[in-house]
Structures are given as C-alpha cells and as structure tokens.
Write a protein that binds this DNA or RNA. Structure first.
Length: 428
RNA sequence: GGAGAGGUGUCCGAGUGGUCGAAGGAGGCGGACUCGAAAUCCGUUGUACAGUUCUGCUGUACCGAGGGUUCGAAUCCCUCCCUCUCCGCCA
C-alpha cells in the first residue's frame, strides 16, 4: 500500500502511474476519502476531548446542582461520539479498500508499456544450443525417461499437478541444494518456512487472499492460505516489528512449496511443468533501508545470474515494463531461460524474477526500522533463487541428447550424484 | 483433545472505577564523578494518527482483541484469541 498522504500530495503522478501499469484504481477517490476521513477524525477527537474534559470536572466531586448538568453533557456526548465512530469506521473501510488497489510507484527507468513486447532486454548470456536432431519438449523427454506422471496426478489431485519420479526427484533436491550453497555463500540466512500463512500476511505482501480472481488457495474456515511463494512467509517474518538500523540489510532465503490456483490460465505455454498448481522454490528476500534497495536489487539479479550461469543454461535478463509489474513491484527483472521445446523452434520462458517492492509491502505489514530521524518503513525485495519445476524444464530441454538421454551440467553433478539421465544412465 | 494458570511499556513487575500513558526495578541514552573503567548520583527514555505559528507544541487513541455497563474503564461484565504448565495422542 502507498502512503495516503503521498497519494494526496502527488495525485497526478500516482494517476499517471496507475495508467502506465494498466491497472484499475481511483487515486482521486482515495484523496477525497482521505480528506473526508481527516475532517471527521478531527471532529471526533474534539468530541472526545470534550468528554475527557467533562469527566475531569466530575473528579472534583462537585455539589449536586453542578453534577446534574455535567452528567447531562456527558450523556449527550455519549450519543454523539459513537455515531461519529461508526461513520469513521465505514469511511476508513472504504478508504483502505480503495487505497489497496493503488499500485506501487514505478522506477523511473522501468520501461513504460503494456505487454511483453514492451519489456527491455538487458543482456543475453550463454549460447543457444543447436541440435542435430529435432528438439523435443520436456514432456516428451520426461515421459521417455520415466521422470513424470501427469495423467495419474490428474486422477489423484486434478489437472496441473504432477508426480516427479526417479531422477527427477533427485534433480529437485539437487537443484535446491545447489542454490542453497550459492546463496548461503552470499550471506543469506537459510530457512524452511511454513507452507501456510494468515490472510493478513498474504494480503500485506500484495496477494489477494480470497475471491474468484485470487491466485492463492484459501483454507476453509481457517483464515489462512496456502502460500504462493515463500516471499509471503519471509516478508511476514518481521511483521509489526521495529528493527535496529544496524541489523540491515537482512538477507533471508526460504525453501517452500508454492501453491497457485492459476484460474483461467491456459494456452500453449501452460503444458507440462511450466504452469502448475504446486512446485518447490528457493526464494531470496531482502529487508533494507530505502537508500540501499536499488543496490540490493542489482545484487539479487547478480545472484540469479550466477545460479543459472553456473548451470550453463542460456538465458536473457529483462527489465519488466510497467504494465507487467503487478501491484507491488517498483522495478522487476526477469530471467528468461531458453526453452528449446517451447513453441515451434524454442522460446524464452521465465525462470526467475526479482522485484524491488520498496515500502509497498512493509507499510501494510508494519515492518519498520529505527532511523536517526524516526521510525521508517523498510524496503523489501524478493528474488527467485530456483523455481524447481521451471529449472527442470530448462535443464531437460537444453541438455537433451540425440540418443534421448539428458546430460547433467557439471556444476550440478555433485548435487544429484549422476552425470546423465537415460538411456543407460551413463552405464555402459 | 482434557485440566489448570496467565496475557500491562524494550524486559521484569505493581496497579483501590476518576489524581494512570500507567508505580517500582532492569536495560538503553545523555551528563556528573574518574587518568580510564566499575560502582554511585542526576536527568532522560513507547507507538500510531491528526492538527500546528514544525527539528517544538497540542489533541486523540493504544494496558491481548472485540463488545457492554458508567458522566468517566488497565481496573466491573460478556465473547473471542493467544501463551505457558500438566495429561493424552503423534511424525
């Protein structure tokens, strides 16, 4: 959520930002409601001051003839105050409801535009593999090598679920451990987080906890949701706390399952492992001062490049345009891996993403730090270390061999314990 | 799941319906003493929102949460939540 005062004082910039992001929110209404709320609050506080004043006079235990009018006055205030309180509550509910729709401001360098074509490619790393045979997608590769079972997962759990089998299981754990080693060298505190979080935390991070539009699974009667990413549980870790300035930056990494409803998401790129209801992910999360967040964002991007560069997977880095930033991000970089099985002749597919959400999340979550000039909201950033299901796609498709086997990149071999998958697993 | 105890400021811990934003202590910060330190002494020390003649001042709210009683609630009543201890169950 943005600061209400900021919205009122920078109304035009906020409105322009909403338009650039292609979002629906009425900042003007927020500003008007805010003014109304402040006027009403002032009125209410004056009445309460009168009530306190009145009660103070009673403390002196005045004679009966003075008491009676004071009691009358008190009773009058007692009807007026709750009436204002009720109106204030309704007004604030509307105000916050509207204010929560207003997205974060965007970085001045973030490309402005609506669709994917407006994203700015920053760099491309690693050669795109040239195959002497016709490249297959990960579904075909995996089925041959007995790595997945989508059909039985559908029978048991529904569409967009999967069983990982055999080497794919080891691939999952190996990828996680590979990523953990890198980020722990980079100073991140490792955690395994709950896979469930309260709605207040889910909402504070910027996810819509309930409703048909929501991408998260709400648990019936519990007020909690399955998390869509460990960003939620890591971001909530310090909710309602005031941190010491010396503690910053805080670097956390969380391993979790991620659950996404993906309601209405369909199409050619939702086949196989690309868009699924459940996957495992290692997420990085940074809490820092406002002055530091741009630099921390570059740092996160650098780590993501190290992780996928180390796997020798060709990828490009994209500066996400305003229309694709979502509500919370101030700036976002996506890493898109080359996926040879995508479309007719391969294509780029998002494998990681890192966002600087500035104080948009920390304001609702109540995470602040003690600065010399007073308590300020921290900046929060997140970045994917490895999203296992998508990493598996990139590995299988880029490292597929003519004989149907899949080679394992050198850096990953120690973590998985084998050099290739099928047809004989490297055995003669 | 059963039984009991309890939720007050950074922490510990008092609190009779008005003099309680809240005693006392610890801790933190500033200062005095000291060659320096410890000890001792003095002072200071919550958060949020709003207003403002704005590096200060004023008002309001906050003693787990939400209701109620009252001219007035940390204090009385109701509901809920949470924590701890013991027992049961369990990976």
């Amino acid at each position: 959520m943005l600061d209400l005062r900021f919205i009122r004082e920078n109304l035009e910039a906020v409105q322009a930002n909403i338009a650039a992001r292609n979002m629906q929110a009425d900042a003007g209404l927020v500003a008007r409601l805010y003014d109304q709320r402040n006027a009403l609050l002032k009125e209410l506080e004056q009445l309460r001051a009168q009530r306190n004043e009145n009660a103070k006079k009673m403390k002196a235990k005045p004679p009966d003839d003075e008491r009676a009018p004071l009691i009358e006055e008190g009773k009058r205030l007692k009807t007026e105050i709750p009436e204002r309180e009720q109106r204030l509550e309704q007004l604030e509910q509307r105000l916050y409801g509207e204010a929560e729709k207003v997205p974060n401001m965007a970085h001045p360098d973030a490309p402005i535009g609506a669709g994917e074509h407006a994203n700015r490619e920053l760099k491309q790393l690693g050669p795109i593999p040239q195959f002497t045979f016709s490249a297959r997608d990960h579904i075909a590769i995996g089925e041959d090598l007995d790595l997945f079972d989508f059909e039985r997962a559908t029978k048991v759990a529904g569409t967009k679920f999967y069983y990982l089998k055999n080497h794919a299981v080891l691939l999952e754990f190996g990828l996680i451990r590979y990523a953990l080693d890198i980020i722990s060298r980079r100073g991140f505190r490792l955690m395994i987080t709950p896979d469930i979080a309260r709605e207040s935390v889910v909402g504070g991070i910027g996810f819509n906890p309930r409703g048909p539009e929501s991408n998260v699974y709400a648990l019936e009667g519990e007020g909690t949701c399955l998390i869509a990413t460990a960003e939620i549980t890591l971001g909530g870790y310090y909710a309602d706390e005031i941190l010491a300035a010396e503690e910053l930056p805080i670097l956390m990494a969380g391993v979790s399952h991620c659950f996404r409803r993906e309601a209405g998401a369909a199409g050619q790129f939702s086949k196989g492992l690309y868009r699924v209801h459940q996957f495992s992910k290692v997420e990085m999360f940074v809490i820092c001062t406002p002055e530091d967040s741009d630099q921390q964002h570059e740092h996160l991007r650098d780590i993501e490049e190290e992780i996928f560069g180390g796997l020798e997977i060709p990828f490009r880095v994209v500066d996400t345009c305003t229309g694709d930033l979502g509500a919370a991000a101030y700036r976002k970089y996506d890493l898109e891996a080359w996926m040879p099985g995508r479309g007719e002749s391969g294509g780029w597919g998002e494998i990681t993403s890192t966002s600087n959400c500035t104080d948009y999340q920390s304001r609702r979550l109540g995470v602040r730090y003690k600065a010399p000039e007073g308590n300020r909201h921290v900046h929060m950033l997140n970045g994917t270390a490895v999203a296992v299901s998508r990493a598996i796609i990139a590995l299988l498709e880029n490292y597929q061999q003519a004989d149907g086997s899949v080679r394992i990149p050198r850096a990953l071999v120690p973590y998985v314990g084998f050099e290739q998958i099928g047809p004989n697993n490297g055995q003669a």
